[in-house]
Amino acid sequence: MNLRPSSDTIRLIVPALSLASLLAAVFWLQPRAMSYIGLNLLFNLAVPIALATIAQMLIMAVNNLDLSMGAFVSFVACVAATFLYDSPLLGVPILVAAVAAYALLGVVIHLRNLPSIVVTLGMSFIWTGLAVLLLPAPGGHAPEWARWLMTAKPPLMPMAIVASILIALLAHFIVMRSSFGVLVRGVGGNERSVERAGWSALAARAGAYGLAGAFAVAAGIALVGLTTSADANIALRYTLLSIAGVILGGGEFVGGRVSPIGAVIGALTLTLAGSFLSFLRISPDWQIGAQGAILIIVLALRLFLNRIENRERRR
């Protein structure tokens, strides 16, 4: 039994600490937030962001980057607010096809060795175009069950917290504990050695993309459950938010080093940072800059800890 924390735990410490200190600051600024309803209001918009962040994390686990995340979540939101509400029999196949399209994207990127950034950037225009076709003007209705799910009031903990914990645990199980997860991270770490060991890197990448599509679909539905209607541009911010969430949560752009629990914490931190700045009454002109400053501070902290980690290892 080794009492020294593992490097994975150290990786989680920074995001967890930044979330805790931000939360403490928010509670201090606005004691009203320290309640069941308050926590729900603070965090419920973080649920779709957390799902999108997990999706982005899966793609980053295989050393790729998805620049179409926001557009895809918007598209799913539009499908959820129209077809999934009017005729689920048509809506479900569309969403399944969208997930399949994601898996296919993984296959194409792998086989043709294409840069994922370019392919997904192109796809983002396709998703946005489809979303505009579906909903030229904002509208639609959230499916009853999605609305019920997002506004449910479980005992003890608000839905936003329950959902975040469930998402984190599910993603942790898939990515860190299942053999599929090991394979995906292996592809990110060293693709060639995975193939030499007799595994199919193609299947792993397609699986990672497909799973990312599934999480992104969940993000879109959760978002519509919260907003009650959709808009073709509703989630455009999610592309950058999801990337920032993964990095904030201890993930890396390359090497298959990702942390699902960290990613969820990262998403919550990003959401909270916005509320924190708003409670501070910082002028909107400065808010984006301040949000960036928070990101840089957290990343600097992590770099600092990484250095300590490396020094320990060298010893």
Binding site: G139, G225, L226, T227, T228, S229, A230, D231, I234
Partner: peptide, 8 residues
């Protein structure tokens, strides 16, 4: 948005 904020 006329619809997107209805939840909030």
């Amino acid at each position: 948005s006329p619809e997107g904020l209805n939840g909030a």
